[in-house]
Amino acid sequence: MNKNYYVKVENLAKRFPGESKGKDLTVFENCNFGIEKGEFVCIIGHSGCGKSTILNILAGLDQATDGYIFMNDKEVSGPSLERGVVFQNYSLLPWLTTLKNVTFGVRARFPQWSKERVIEHSMKFLELVGLKDSAHRKPSELSGGMRQRVSIARAFATQPNLLLLDEPFGALDALTRGMIQEELIKIWEETKQTVFMITHDVDEAILLADRVLLMTNGPYARVAESVTVSIPRPRERSSVIHHPGFYQIRNHLVDFLVSRSKELSGAIQSDSNIQSFTPSIAPKEVDPIAEGMDVQSQEVGTQEQVISA
């Protein structure tokens, strides 16, 4: 990985001690990828491949067994306000009002700010997610979609250098999900934040992401492909599906999830025996639109990895 990414993940691995001695359970290993500044990256993979663990390690809430993460050339160790997290279950503090949940984050991020400035800043972000009128309601009085909006407002309001979204719309119905996706694009375009997001939804990934990382199935999962979504922005839910490249990307992603995620899983298991000089296995870079329709027929035969030691 020669490219100078803003966030660099190198040879990341997570293993749990197995039941019998010496036999560790490897969730994923040899994960290598990068995120550029201002880029929106989604990661897709089946349950159990360790996406959430990767996100938690990025957030500093979990520790990797092997490998490193660098952000802005500094190693990531432990949680930091530089990296904001939106959790799947919203994680709002139920005893605080909507506004206080946002000011909670803002005050921690900018302790030197005056009270008025904190409130003004927080209200601005609540307004961005359309919840200005619910500022003084408690989370229990809000619907799931509204709660997730508050959570997004809190994360964006702290203006982190990297925003981590753990399946933020997983628990929402399709209509609400669509609306918040568009709000998310709007805020992202306004703030130009770097975003790393987990999703299960292929359409969501295409709508939001600049690049989609694909993980193989666990155990011994890894990031196998990095798919560029070169559909021009601004994108909208209604128009993005009419872009000529939409189905090329969609088919590529679905095909990966349905068949290749299984075929590729555990493919480089043997490398873990020689950990002292594990090669950096970069994900295969794919741009379905640029490659055109013929990519579909080719890739059955091309499963070899791009190795750059």
Binding site: A59, L81, G84, V85, L93, A108, T158
Partner: peptide, 9 residues
């Protein structure tokens, strides 16, 4: 909730 506190340092 503890994680919220941790990510907010």
């Amino acid at each position: 909730w503890i994680n919220v506190a941790r990510t907010h340092e």
